[in-house]
């Protein structure tokens, strides 16, 4: 621990590198994603009942936990797919409009996307995790008056997300492949 972080309550621990895998169902075009920690991520298509899932793309990413230094409690974020900055959303979307208003007050909005069902983002345990995530990033800021506000995905961004919006490494390095659905 260095002096800059000595008074921080939370620390990022158990950082696990891996990949966000995006796949689509061949007939319905439904898309979904999951985290893969394997060194060689699977890219083969596979059958799940009547559905056929095909690899669409992947991005280097990571999973992590946050540890409360005061209590030792560890909060896991396995369901967190990534953070979407409001600035990466369409300018005619509600999240962009809200973000733009907040940004004028030096509040930067990011939306936490999850792998799981959107309904789960309204559950108390996820909201508590969001609070902890906000504390983690907030207590690290050194720019005066600046605030980071991470919100649960009440904007249905998961359904609409495109690779480039998420703060993962989609299309940003030469180390992943991308195929159109």
């Amino acid at each position: 621990m260095d002096s800059a972080t000595a008074n921080h309550r939370y620390e990022m621990v158990n950082v696990r590198p891996g990949y966000v895998i995006v796949e689509h169902e061949v007939f319905s075009k439904q898309m979904r994603s999951y985290f893969c920690a394997q060194a060689q991520p699977p890219v083969e298509e596979y059958r799940e009942g009547p559905k056929i899932w095909k690899f669409s793309g992947m991005a280097q990413s990571f999973q992590f936990d946050l540890r409360d230094r005061t209590s030792g409690a560890v909060t896991k974020y396995d369901e967190l797919l990534g953070l979407v900055p409001y600035s990466g959303c369409p300018t005619d979307s509600d999240i962009y409009r809200l973000g733009d208003i907040a940004q004028a007050e030096k509040i930067w909005i990011y939306v936490a996307l999850t792998y799981g069902p959107v309904e789960a983002t309204r559950q108390p345990d996820w909201l508590e995790k969001i609070r902890i995530l906000n504390r983690y990033f907030g207590e690290r800021l050194t720019t005066p008056n600046k605030k980071i506000l991470i919100l649960p995905d009440y904007f249905n961004l998961y359904k609409e997300f495109s690779h480039g919006q998420i703060l993962a490494d989609f299309g940003l390095t030469a180390m992943e492949e991308t195929q159109a659905p």
């Binding site: 800059a4 972080t5 990022m12 950082v15 280097q60 990413s61 990571f62 992590f64 953070l83 900055p85 600035s87 990466g88 690290r140 800021l141 050194t142 720019t143 480039g164 998420i166 703060l167 993962a168 490494d169 299309g171 940003l172 390095t173």
Partner: peptide, 25 residues
Amino acid sequence: DMVSDVIANAKAGNVLVTLQVHNNV
């Protein structure tokens, strides 16, 4: 040059040196 790595490991006040020019950086 990796956004996810920056989030995990860069610290407030650091100078970030990168080749990356995407908005996400």
